[in-house]
Design a protein around this nucleic acid. Structure first.
Lengths: 194, 194
DNA sequence: CGAAAATTTGACATGACTCAACTGGAGTGG
DNA sequence: CCACTCCAGTTGAGTCATGTCAAATTTTCG
């Protein structure tokens, strides 16, 4: 169960990890199973944990005044889930995170996360790279959202993250793109004609 | 000129900096003046530098197929400017960065940036916190863009970054929000009635 | 097989865009 | 100090992309 995570860290760092390091990673990341629809964390709560997804899929979303869900993030195998902002600031989250599929995850607490970051250079490197990449992806998403039409954003997603289209139903993809499911349905019909 | 930067780093880290550390920061960050409208970096180029703004204002934007500018980021005093993605991946940038006001900046190269990160713990801490905060802000912006109307996004900006409204003209704020200047003008007229 | 979930479709409403014209500074040079 | 230009902002009319609501259809899965 932990092998994927170890490999993930190795792939994203240059400093080697000692057996000790690996042992503490294994000790701190607790395997947990979540069922489809189960919440990982909820809005207005202060998030306590971060999860590395070994198998399964989660989504992170806000709910607006009208009760409509807006998906800000989709996570599958070898991705992370958790509201980093709430975790880091110890502030109530704006987001819900739940499982879209039955999920096997490795869960770590905020405190354990920071002690790993401090004690294992490779781990710290990995989180740094991760944060950077995450910020890049978000900036590009902001750019897409202010500069592209619904159709173009869909095409962009299709190109950048084709795996999402396999794993999540259209109405979730629509929400992630910031359009209604009806609009996405029409957009796809249109573009398939070409 | 470097004092602001030193203070900025101190405020965002716990590890103290030695005189040596401070000396290398001063050596690596080169003061540079930019005139209003001057480019800091351009699309399709591989970005070489990062800037800490001591005084002035810059904007980062893409230009779409129709030639329309889409502002993804605004930076003023005590903020950073530079395309981190292009810098880090050594890939051509999608963005232009230019000065909206005459600007005094401290400029550092990619290479010097990584050597400071490696050699000065406080500096490395600061960049880590910065990246985190940046990612939080971007996620919230994504959330706003998929869940709020133009009017709500404007109200949100007014609350979160009132200084932008002072420093940049409306058409730039409009672009940052992902609407046309005409729409923003109407939105403001509407909301001022209440 | 049957129920629930997902998707599609149609009719209509509306928010935001486009284009063009107009207004009102701010700065510049004669 | 005026005339001029440039830039920002506003306004109006028409259009278009996307949203809303309701219903029909298809798919999924226990």
């Amino acid at each position: 169960m932990h092998e994927e995570l170890i490999r993930y860290i190795r792939d994203r760092s240059v400093t080697p990890m000692s057996d000790d390091n690996i042992a503490s990673i294994k000790a701190f990341f607790v395997p947990k199973k979540f069922r489809r629809k189960q919440y990982f964390s909820q809005a207005d709560e202060i998030s306590k944990n971060l999860a590395f997804i070994v198998k399964g899929a989660m989504r992170q979303y806000s709910i607006d005044a009208k009760g409509i869900e807006h998906v800000v993030r989709l996570s599958i195998e070898n991705w992370w889930a958790g509201d980093r902002e709430s975790l880091s600031n110890q502030a109530p989250s704006r987001y819900f995170i739940d499982c879209w599929e039955d999920t096997d995850a490795l869960v770590i607490s905020r405190a354990d996360m920071s002690s790993l970051t401090e004690s294992i250079p490779a781990f710290s490197e990995m989180t740094r790279v991760l944060d950077e990449k995450h910020a890049f992806a978000l900036l590009n998403r902001v750019n897409a959202s202010i500069s592209l039409s619904a159709e173009e954003r869909y095409a962009d997603l299709e190109k950048s993250y084709p795996e999402f289209l396999q794993r999540f139903p259209q109405h979730i993809i629509a929400s992630y793109l910031g359009v209604t499911k009806e609009t996405l349905s029409r957009v796809r019909k249109q573009s398939s004609k070409r």
